[in-house]
C-alpha cells in the first residue's frame, strides 16, 4: 500500500505581486518503509514538497494523501495532531531544545505532543537512546554534544512517538563525512528495525546513493525517477568513527 500519494501536486506562493510556482504538477507515490530522497538544486521545490508531506504547508493544487489522509483538509490544530501522531522530523541544524538534556529532548514529544504514562515514557526513551547509541550521553545538554551526537538525539526524538514517517531536511549537511555516513547507516537501521519510512530532501550525494527511491526536482517539476541505484563513488567504508 502506498504511504504517500501525490497527483498533479502544485504549490504557488505569492511573493509581492508575483506568483512563484514552487511545485508544478508533480506526481509520485512512496511505499511504506521506503528510504526515499527528493533531490535537486536550491529552489527546485524539494523542501516545499517535504513541507507539504509534513503538513506544514498546504498544496494549492492537485492531491496529496499521507497515510490515507488528504492533507489539504487539515487545519492548524488537526495538522499539528496529525504530525504529532504520525510524522517525525529531522533538521539540518538538529533543532534540539537547548535547555533540555538529550533524554528530555527525546522525551519531549511524549509529554508535549502525546500524553504517555511516565513508566511507558521512560521505557520508550531509554529504548530509543539505546538504539541510537546515546544512552551514556542521556544527561547531557545539546551544547555538550557533538554534531553527530545531536543528530542521533534528533533521530531518537523523531522516532520516539512511533512515527510511521520521518521527514529529514538535509540531515547530513552540517556533519562531517564520516559522521554523515554513520547517521545514514543509523537511519537505515531504524527503518529496518521499526519499519519507518524515511524521506529526505537533500543534495548530499551520500544520501542520494543510499536512497532506494530518488525523486529529482528541477524548477518545481519532476525530472527523473530513480529506483534506488547507488553511485559507487559516493560510498564509504564502514570503519568510519562515531560522530
Amino acid at each position: 500500500m502506498s504511504l504517500i500519494q501525490a497527483q498533479a501536486l502544485e504549490k504557488t506562493y505569492r511573493a509581492g505581486d508575483v506568483d512563484v510556482h514552487a511545485v508544478r504538477g508533480v506526481d509520485f507515490t512512496i511505499e511504506a518503509a521506503s528510504f526515499a530522497a527528493f533531490v535537486g538544486p536550491s529552489g527546485s521545490g524539494k523542501s516545499t514538497v517535504l513541507n507539504m508531506i509534513g503538513c506544514l504547508d498546504h498544496p494549492t493544487g492537485g492531491m496529496l494523501k499521507v497515510l490515507d489522509t488528504d492533507v489539504s483538509l487539515l487545519n492548524r490544530e488537526t495538522g499539528a495532531a496529525f504530525r504529532g501522531n504520525n510524522i517525525g522530523f529531522i533538521f539540518q541544524d538538529f533543532n534540539l531544545v537547548p535547555v533540555l538534556t538529550a533524554y528530555e529532548n527525546v522525551e519531549y514529544p511524549l509529554i508535549m505532543v502525546q500524553d504517555w504514562p511516565a513508566a511507558d515514557r521512560a521505557k520508550r526513551v531509554k529504548e530509543l537512546l539505546e538504539a541510537v547509541g546515546m544512552s551514556d550521553q542521556a544527561d547531557k545538554r545539546p551544547d555538550q554534544l557533538s554534531g553527530g551526537q545531536k543528530q542521533r538525539v534528533a533521530v531518537a526524538r523523531a522516532l520516539v512517538a512511533r512515527s510511521k514517517l520521518v521527514l529529514a531536511d538535509e540531515p547530513t549537511a552540517n556533519l562531517d563525512h564520516d559522521t554523515a555516513y554513520r547517521i545514514i547507516e543509523l537511519l537505515k537501521g531504524m527503518r529496518d528495525e521499526y519499519g519507518t519510512t524515511f524521506i529526505f530532501s537533500t543534495h548530499d550525494p551520500k544520501i542520494m546513493g543510499e536512497a532506494e527511491v530518488t525523486f529529482t526536482l528541477e524548477d518545481g517539476r519532476m525530472q527523473t525517477l530513480n529506483g534506488g541505484s547507488r553511485p559507487p563513488d559516493t560510498r564509504i567504508g564502514s570503519e568510519a568513527s562515531h560522530g
Binding site: E77, A80, G84, F89, N95, V97, Y108
Partner: peptide
C-alpha cells in the same frame, strides 16, 4: 523563533 518552529513542526499543539 526557530525553537518554536521546531516544537510546532513536531506536533506540539498551539495551545500548549
Amino acid at each position: 523563533i526557530r525553537e518554536i518552529g521546531t516544537i510546532l513542526a513536531i506536533g506540539t499543539p498551539p495551545g500548549r
